[in-house]
Design a protein around this nucleic acid. Structure first.
Lengths: 145, 145
DNA sequence: TTGGCTAAGTTAGCATGCTAAGTTATCCCC
DNA sequence: GGGGATAACTTAGCATGCTAACTTAGCCAA
């Protein structure tokens, strides 16, 4: 068996995530997962836990636990949604905003440097990856998931 | 912030891994992680825990625990390496071999179907992914890691 | 030969993913 | 208005990743 695409994707991403996590913990005192959650709330408007779970690609229980921790750390504000339902309204605290804005661009730049070094055309690879994600998303939805 | 490349890679892989895990557990009664480990021992000749950790892109303690479980399940044989050192010599049991060979090609085929559906050129994407992994690997090694 | 170095593996404990099952809030139909 | 759906969330417990620190086995130089 050659190292096939699914394995390479798995391993590449595992290494990138691990590196991101190491850098963030060392330089900013926060895990990659928590940073992603804060970023998605702050910049993509993930305003409920359900939405945040979708953006992150994880399940609701995972998000539920994490929002609890982030709220306890004073980085995230979690309130019942005044519009009703059983939703939580998520928003960054000032401390959360400071944390996110002080970091945001760094990773993409570092990854872009790796991509440049490798000779892989960035725009094309990014577009292909986005397209695969969108297609996989659609197929899972159609399959009833 | 747009959904950038690092986030898309993270989420795409998380979903692929989750789907693979669901399918394997339902249809073959084994987790994706354990299947990958068995496959790499059987087909790429990962003959020590150190090597297996490298192939999988995880750390030695993670592998150490998993080989223990796989050995307890009777799928993997773990022996002190007769050549000396503190190595373990890893090999599939007959049950392990049966498990792997009955599954192997399925995932790559399913992923290839998603790729085809998306219109992304498979060979090119696979080659780019492999190149990124190789480059990242080299950069980490050079950085002393 | 012995004391330290290195490589490989293990143990302990935490972070964060999951599924299954339960809770809470709203809606809608009779 | 009451009862069952539905959606969002939580709780419980397991799987598997990590780091830090320890153990084990062999090697090498004084």
């Amino acid at each position: 068996m050659e190292r096939n695409l699914s394995l390479n994707l798995h391993v590449l991403t595992a290494r990138l995530d691990r590196a991101a996590d190491r850098i963030l913990r060392a330089e900013h005192g926060i895990s990659y997962s928590r940073f992603l959650a804060l970023t998605l709330v702050g910049e993509l408007g993930a305003s409920t836990q359900r939405t945040l779970a979708e953006y992150l690609g994880v399940t609701e229980p995972s998000v539920s636990r994490m929002t609890g921790v982030l709220a306890a750390d004073g980085l995230l504000d979690v309130q019942p949604d005044p519009a009703g339902g059983n939703r939580r309204r998520l928003s960054l605290t000032d401390a959360g905003k400071r944390r996110v804005t002080s970091i945001r661009q760094e990773f993409e730049d570092r990854l872009a440097a790796v991509v440049a070094e490798s000779g892989v055309p960035y725009a094309e690879y990014a577009e292909h990856t986005a397209r695969l994600l969108a297609t996989f998303d659609r197929l899972e939805r159609e399959a009833g998931k």
